[in-house]
């Protein structure tokens, strides 16, 4: 089945812009990115859109469809009725460059602030040995494709530009969790740094990051909340602190 779909696509740059109406052909089995490409090919050759794999694995085509952060290549047109107007805008948490393309360099700056994996001294790459059961939790976070939809939807920075310097965001909280839970990582103080330097305390666990994750990573339950509990261990729980001093408990 084919039909003429109604679309509103945001066109503009950081100076000005607005929603522009288009009528575009939609065919069975297509996703929103297919329609955007047809729009480029037939009516708006200068429409800027970032994309790459068309398979939900590169994280490039992040945008907002009807106000919800989505991957354009993973949003099926069959989820909309033929008479529904589909609105496509760029991510609204980051500065826009042009049309549907935003500047996500905020995320790369935050990534650089997190110290890398530190293996035990004397253990060279290739000699790492660990039980699968120990590394399973960290591996969930390795599924992240860095589409930054979780960063886009997080109200801590989406609604409060002023928090950006102090807040790393959910993508980087699971990066910290991945390292802090890693059985071979030896760096001390990751949990304290999550709270003091990366703004974990700003998160109020409203779970929007988990809702939008296209990889289905349980960002809040498996990453952020466990890290908040580890922060409590090291900063707010006097009994755990005392126990660690008396019994020299290790993890």
């Amino acid at each position: 089945m084919s039909y003429e779909g109604s679309f509103r696509v945001w066109r503009g740059d950081d100076d000005a812009g607005g929603l522009v109406d288009y009528q575009v052909e939609v065919n069975d089995g297509e996703v929103v990115l297919d329609v955007i490409h047809r729009l480029q090919a037939t009516q708006a050759p200068d429409l800027a859109v970032r994309w790459n794999c068309k398979a939900g694995k590169c994280g490039s085509c992040s945008a907002e469809v009807n106000g919800r952060p989505r991957l354009l290549c993973m949003t099926r047109m069959s989820t909309f009725s033929p008479d529904e107007v589909v609105t496509v805008t760029p991510l609204r948490t980051f500065p826009v460059l042009r049309d549907l393309v935003t500047d996500v360099s905020f995320n790369y700056e935050k990534a650089r602030e997190i110290p890398a994996f530190e293996p035990p001294k004397g253990v060279a790459p290739g000699d790492y040995r660990m039980a699968q059961v120990d590394v399973g939790r960290s591996q969930e976070f390795r599924k992240c494709i860095e589409c930054f939809l979780c960063q886009d939807v997080c109200h801590v920075i989406r609604d409060h530009e002023q928090n950006k310097p102090a807040f790393a965001g959910p993508r980087f909280f699971i990066r910290i969790a991945e390292l802090d839970m890693h059985p071979l990582d030896t760096r001390e103080g990751r949990a304290e740094a999550a709270q003091d330097e990366h703004g974990l305390g700003l998160c109020n666990i409203t779970k929007c990051c988990t809702e939008v994750c296209p990889e289905g990573i349980k960002i809040t339950d498996n990453g952020i909340i466990p890290m908040k509990e580890r922060v409590v261990d090291r900063k707010y729980d006097p009994l755990v602190w005392l126990g660690s001093k008396i019994f020299r408990r290790q993890t």
Binding site: G12, A16, N66, V96, D159, E161
Partner: peptide
Amino acid sequence: VPASGVAAPGRARIGQGTLRSD
């Protein structure tokens, strides 16, 4: 649209705070 947030300078200028239609 609140004072900052999605209306902050540099972000795409969209008059409505949310475009969610659900």
